[in-house]
Simulated assay, not measured.
Amino acid sequence: MKSGLVTIKDLARELKISASTVSRALKNHPDISEATKKAVHELAEKLNYQPNAVALSLKQRRSNTIGVIIPEIVHYFFSSVISGIEDVAYDAGYNVIICQSNERYEREVANSKTLLASRVDGVLVSISKETEDFSHLFNLRNNNVPMVFYDRIVPGLEADQVIIDDFDAAYRVTKHLVDSGRKRIAHFAGPQKLLIGKHRKDGYIKAIREAGLEVDEKLIIEADSFEKARLAVMRLLNEKRDFDAIFAVNDLTAIGAMQTVQKRGIKIPDEIAIVGFSDGRFSGITDPTLTSVDQHGYEMGSIATQMLLKRISAEDDTYPFETRVLNADLIVRGSSI
Rank of each mutant, 00 (worst) to 15 (best):
residue 253 T to N: 08
residue 278 S to M: 05
residue 250 N to G: 01
residue 266 I to L: 13
residue 258 M to Q: 09
residue 266 I to C: 07
residue 256 G to A: 02
residue 258 M to W: 10
residue 255 I to R: 09
residue 254 A to W: 14
residue 276 G to M: 10
residue 278 S to C: 09
residue 249 V to Y: 04
residue 268 I to A: 03
residue 252 L to M: 14
residue 256 G to H: 12
residue 247 F to W: 05
residue 271 E to P: 01
residue 277 F to A: 02
residue 252 L to W: 10
residue 259 Q to C: 02
residue 273 A to M: 07
residue 254 A to R: 12
residue 256 G to E: 07
residue 249 V to M: 05
residue 267 K to Y: 10
residue 272 I to M: 07
residue 251 D to T: 00
residue 260 T to Q: 15
residue 250 N to I: 03
residue 272 I to E: 02
residue 271 E to M: 07
residue 253 T to K: 11
residue 247 F to T: 00
residue 251 D to R: 13
residue 268 I to Q: 10
residue 277 F to R: 11
residue 264 R to C: 09
residue 254 A to I: 04
residue 268 I to M: 11
residue 275 V to C: 14
residue 275 V to P: 07
residue 257 A to Y: 11
residue 272 I to K: 09
residue 252 L to T: 03
residue 270 D to I: 01
residue 273 A to E: 05
residue 265 G to L: 12
residue 253 T to G: 04
residue 263 K to Q: 15
residue 275 V to K: 14
residue 250 N to Y: 13
residue 275 V to I: 13
residue 274 I to T: 02
residue 275 V to T: 13
residue 255 I to P: 12
residue 269 P to E: 02
residue 275 V to G: 03
residue 250 N to E: 05
residue 248 A to K: 11
residue 259 Q to I: 06
residue 264 R to D: 06
residue 247 F to A: 01
residue 260 T to K: 15
residue 255 I to D: 07
residue 250 N to V: 02
residue 257 A to H: 12
residue 262 Q to K: 15
residue 270 D to N: 12
residue 267 K to H: 12
